Amino acid sequence: MTLTLTVPPGAKVRVRITNENGETTEIEVEPGETVTITLPAGSTVRVEVEVVDPDGRKRTETFTLKP
């Protein structure tokens, strides 16, 4: 399973991925970048995406991906 994120110009994104064992991976994606994350097959993962807009506003979306 893959997750692809494209960050709009001016925004910053931090992604936290937590697996079933509670292990967390965190990455930051710079403005204008596209990143593809390969998620472990057969695992349920929690993905938290934090977006910081150019004006400093933050918003966070959290979702769970199941196999």
Rank of each mutant, 00 (worst) to 15 (best):
N21M: 08
T60D: 00
P67Q: 09
R46C: 05
E50P: 00
T4Y: 11
E20L: 07
G10Q: 10
E30D: 04
I27D: 09
T38E: 06
T60M: 03
E30P: 06
V49C: 07
I27A: 12
G10W: 01
K58E: 01
P40C: 15
K12G: 08
E26S: 05
G22V: 07
T6C: 15
G32L: 08
G10P: 09
T2W: 14
V47L: 02
T24Y: 06
V7Y: 15
E50M: 02
N21S: 06
P8H: 13
V47W: 01
P40M: 11
T2M: 07
P40E: 12
K12Y: 08
R59T: 08
T34R: 10
A11V: 01
V49S: 00
L65C: 15
K12R: 04
P8N: 12
V49F: 03
P40N: 11
E48V: 05
I17W: 13
T18A: 04
V35D: 04
I27F: 10
E48M: 03
V47C: 02
L39I: 05
P8E: 14
L65W: 15
T60R: 02
R14M: 13
K58A: 03
T38M: 07
R59G: 00
R46P: 01
R14F: 12
E30A: 06
L65K: 00
A11T: 03
T4P: 09
K58P: 01
M1F: 13
V49R: 01
L39S: 12
V52Q: 05
T4S: 05
R46I: 12
P31Y: 09
R46G: 02
T2Y: 11
A41Y: 13
D55C: 14
E20T: 03
A41W: 14
E50V: 03
G10R: 07
R16K: 05
P8Y: 13
V51C: 05
T25K: 06
V35C: 05
L39A: 14
D53A: 03
G10T: 02
V13Q: 02
E50Q: 04
G56I: 00
L5P: 03
T25N: 05
V7G: 01
N21A: 09
L39C: 14
T62V: 14
E23Q: 06
K12H: 11
V29I: 04
P40Y: 14
T44W: 14
E50W: 02
R46K: 06
T44S: 07
P8D: 14
K12F: 08
E48R: 02
T44C: 14
M1G: 05
G56T: 00
V13F: 02
V13A: 08
V29Q: 14
T64G: 00
P54D: 04
K66A: 14
T4L: 09
R16P: 00
P9A: 08
T62G: 02
E61V: 15
T24F: 07
K12L: 06
L65A: 01
P9R: 08
V51A: 01
G32F: 12
T36C: 15
P9V: 08
E33N: 05
V13Y: 01
T44N: 03
R59A: 01
V52I: 09
L5C: 14
P9G: 07
I17F: 13
T38L: 11
N21L: 07
N19A: 10
V7I: 10
K58M: 04
T36Q: 06
V15D: 00
A41D: 08
V13T: 12
E50T: 10
L5A: 07
E33F: 13
V51M: 04
V52D: 01
T62A: 03
L65I: 14
L5I: 07
E30H: 08
R14Q: 12
T34S: 07
V51Y: 13
T36F: 10
G42N: 08
K12W: 05
L65G: 00
D53K: 00
E33D: 11
T44P: 12
N19C: 13
R46N: 04
E33W: 08
E20K: 05
E61Y: 15
L39D: 08
T4A: 07
R14N: 11
G10S: 07
G42E: 10
R46Y: 13
D55G: 01
R14Y: 11
T6Q: 12
T25M: 11
L5F: 10
T18H: 13
P31G: 09
T34A: 11
V51N: 01
D55H: 02
V51P: 00
A41N: 10
T34K: 13
I27T: 09
E20F: 06
M1H: 09
E30L: 04
P8S: 12
F63Q: 01
P40L: 14
L65H: 01
V49H: 00
R59E: 01
E50N: 02
V51E: 01
T62D: 01
G22D: 13
T36H: 08
L5R: 03
P8F: 10
K58R: 05
A41F: 13
V47G: 08
